[in-house]
Amino acid sequence: MNEIQAAKKLEGISAINITPFQEDASIDWKALDANIDFLIENGLEVIVPSGNTGEFYALTIEESIEENRRTAERVNGRAMMVAGVGYSVETAVEMGRTAKKDGCDAIMIHMPIHPYMTEDGVVNYFQRIMEEIDMPAVLYFKNPALSDNVLKRLTHMKQLAGVKYAVNDLPRFAKIVQETPATHGVTWVCGTAEKWAPFFWNAGAKGFTSGLVNLHPRLSFEMLEALQTSDWDSVWNIWYQVVPFEDLRAKNNNGNNVVVIKEAMEALGFPAGKTREPVAPLDEADHNAVLELLEKWGLTKEQFSAVR
């Protein structure tokens, strides 16, 4: 898959799969296969293992590399496989080269987590990784303290297929989209899921990421179709159904992001397992709120298992 094809694929929903864990907190590879099959069988065309919904920073580097490999093997050409990579430049390059060898179609480069960053340094970070791996890449841009000049200096690169923009500043996002030449061929993706997707769409996004698809893909696809056809009555109707779920995920400074999804999946009979530290299980009130939402949506164990 080349960069043009990858950019086109990003004009939709990027499914960020979970990493299921067993009771001893080791990865449940059988459940991961089931999760990937569920996503593909329900129409997802972009699968992103080793993303934040997949608890990237709670995995060892070896686990992340193995998850990328196994996911590529399970996807087997049925969708575009975008492998998450990150940490130091050398580590990200090693992860990316391995993902390329293992049959992944593209990489998603996580934001560097170093406590000290400069604009020039971040540009060099992303540039070196893209050049040394040399395959279609998505930049995960989520640090509001960094200037969008970082992106301006990178969008010309041939390897760059898309930007997953996760800073919820719509004027800022609209400006960088408008100032990026269309000839650069970059697809702009709302990196903060369905709650923010309509706003980013109006500002120039062509796709959005989703953790919700792990349990309720129909709702996500209804939103995508409504956005693509400018059916705004439907967009807002779906938005109101999604917002309570996304608000739960946003609690604790987004600390609930993954655990809400996992506990919802567990309630529906899928062995998602617990989240690893530093995330704890939901408190009773939030857990009950998840159950109430599932009931409101009409999702049941029987319906969920029927599509698996």
Rank of each mutant, 00 (worst) to 15 (best):
P278T: 01
N237I: 00
A285G: 01
K195D: 13
N76Q: 12
G12F: 12
G273Y: 08
G273M: 09
T98A: 14
K175G: 01
V122S: 04
V258I: 13
P198Y: 04
K8T: 13
L268Y: 12
A205E: 05
A197H: 03
T209S: 15
M223Y: 05
A161D: 02
L227S: 08
P171A: 05
G298Y: 07
A264E: 03
A31T: 03
G96K: 10
N149H: 13
H114T: 15
V167S: 03
W29K: 03
D105K: 05
W196M: 12
I16H: 12
F221L: 10
V242N: 07
F304M: 14
F21Y: 11
C190K: 05
A280E: 13
Y57G: 03
T60I: 10
I36R: 01
G54P: 02
M157I: 00
E41M: 10
A137K: 00
L154T: 07
E295P: 02
T180L: 07
P278K: 00
F304D: 06
T91P: 04
V242M: 11
M265N: 05
V243L: 08
A92M: 08
D102R: 12
S220R: 05
P244W: 01
K206H: 13
V279H: 11
T209A: 10
V82Q: 05
E266R: 13
M135E: 11
N214D: 11
F141I: 06
A289Q: 12
G204Q: 06
G191C: 04
Y57V: 09
R69E: 13
K251S: 08
F126Q: 09
I40D: 06
N253S: 14
Y165P: 01
K142R: 15
Y240T: 10
N288F: 02
A264S: 09
N143Y: 10
N214G: 07
Q228H: 03
I36T: 13
L10S: 03
M95W: 01
G255I: 04
T53R: 00
T60E: 05
F245C: 03
P198L: 08
G255F: 10
E266N: 14
H156S: 11
T180G: 11
T180P: 06
E292A: 15
Q159L: 04
S26V: 11
G204M: 00
F56E: 03
N68M: 10
S147Y: 04
P115K: 02
F208V: 02
A83F: 00
E94S: 12
P271L: 09
V186H: 05
N237A: 11
A197C: 06
I261F: 05
P136M: 07
V213H: 06
A15M: 02
N288D: 14
T229S: 15
W236N: 09
A182N: 05
S147E: 04
R69W: 00
